Simulated scan of single mutants.
Amino acid sequence: MHESMFSKGLIDLSNQSTSSRQLFDSVASVAHKKGYARKDYGKGLMDREVKFPTGLMFPSLTIALPHVDPEFVLKPFIYVVKTNAPIKWKQMGDMKPMSTSNFLFLGIKEPSKQVGLLAQIMSAFKDQEFVNEFLKTTDPGNMYRLLSDQFTKISAS
C-alpha cells in the first residue's frame, strides 16, 4: 500500500456522529470537498453497507472498513475516523450486530487491489502492538505516522 493512500487531511479522531448515516454524511462531505470522492459517495456507502456490512471484531478492538464501488472514488484514499461514541454496526460475512468507534474508509479505484488491501489491514489489526498504539493515538499527526509506518512495513515485506 502506498503512503499516498493516507493523508493528514483525512484523519478525524473525534467525530461526533452517533449513527452510520451521520458518519457517512460527515465523511462523504469532507471526501467530496477535498476532491477524493464524488458528491454521491455517501449514498454509495449507505447502499453498499446495507448489502455488504464491513464490521470486524478483533480480540482487543472492533473496527469497520466501509467502502464503495470504484466509480464513487475520484482518487484513492484511506480516511481514518474514530467516533466519540460507539456506533451500531453489522459484522462482515454473518451480519451479526456489533458496535465500534473505529473506522477506516477505503477509497479504492482499482477493484483488483481491494483484496490485498483488506488482507494488509487484517494483518495489521492482528498485531497487538500496533492495535495498542492505534487505540491510544489521539493526535492526527501521530496517527498519520503510525499508519504510514505500519503499512509501508507491511507492503515492503
Rank of each mutant, 00 (worst) to 15 (best):
K126C: 12
K96L: 10
Q120R: 09
W89T: 09
D40C: 07
D40M: 03
G9L: 05
I121H: 10
M122C: 00
S123M: 11
M122A: 11
A85N: 01
F72C: 04
F52H: 14
E71T: 00
T100V: 14
K33F: 06
P111T: 12
V81N: 08
Q22Y: 05
L118Y: 06
L104C: 05
Q16Y: 11
S14M: 01
L74P: 08
I11W: 03
M95A: 14
G116M: 00
Q128T: 11
L56S: 13
T83E: 02
V115S: 14
K33C: 06
V30N: 10
Q128G: 15
A124V: 05
A31V: 07
M122Y: 01
G35T: 04
S101E: 13
F105S: 03
M98A: 02
D47G: 15
V131D: 10
P53H: 03
D25H: 02
F58A: 03
L135S: 13
F134M: 08
K113Y: 06
P86G: 12
L117I: 14
T100I: 14
Q120G: 09
T62S: 13
M92R: 07
S123V: 04
K90F: 10
L56N: 11
L61Q: 14
S17I: 08
R48A: 13
V73K: 01
M57H: 14
G93R: 11
Q22M: 12
K33H: 12
Y36M: 02
M92G: 14
S99W: 13
A85L: 06
L106P: 05
Q22C: 05
E71C: 02
V68N: 08
G55I: 10
H32E: 15
G93K: 03
K136I: 06
Q114I: 03
K43T: 11
D69F: 12
Q91G: 07
M98P: 05
A85C: 06
F24D: 07
N84E: 12
Q114P: 13
S20K: 09
G42R: 03
E71G: 02
D25N: 12
S112L: 06
W89V: 12
T18H: 09
F125Q: 02
P59H: 04
G42C: 09
G44Q: 06
G44R: 04
Y41S: 03
K136R: 15
N102V: 13
M122R: 09
L106D: 02
V68K: 10
P70D: 00
G107C: 14
N15R: 05
D69K: 15
F72E: 02
F77M: 01
L23H: 03
Y36I: 03
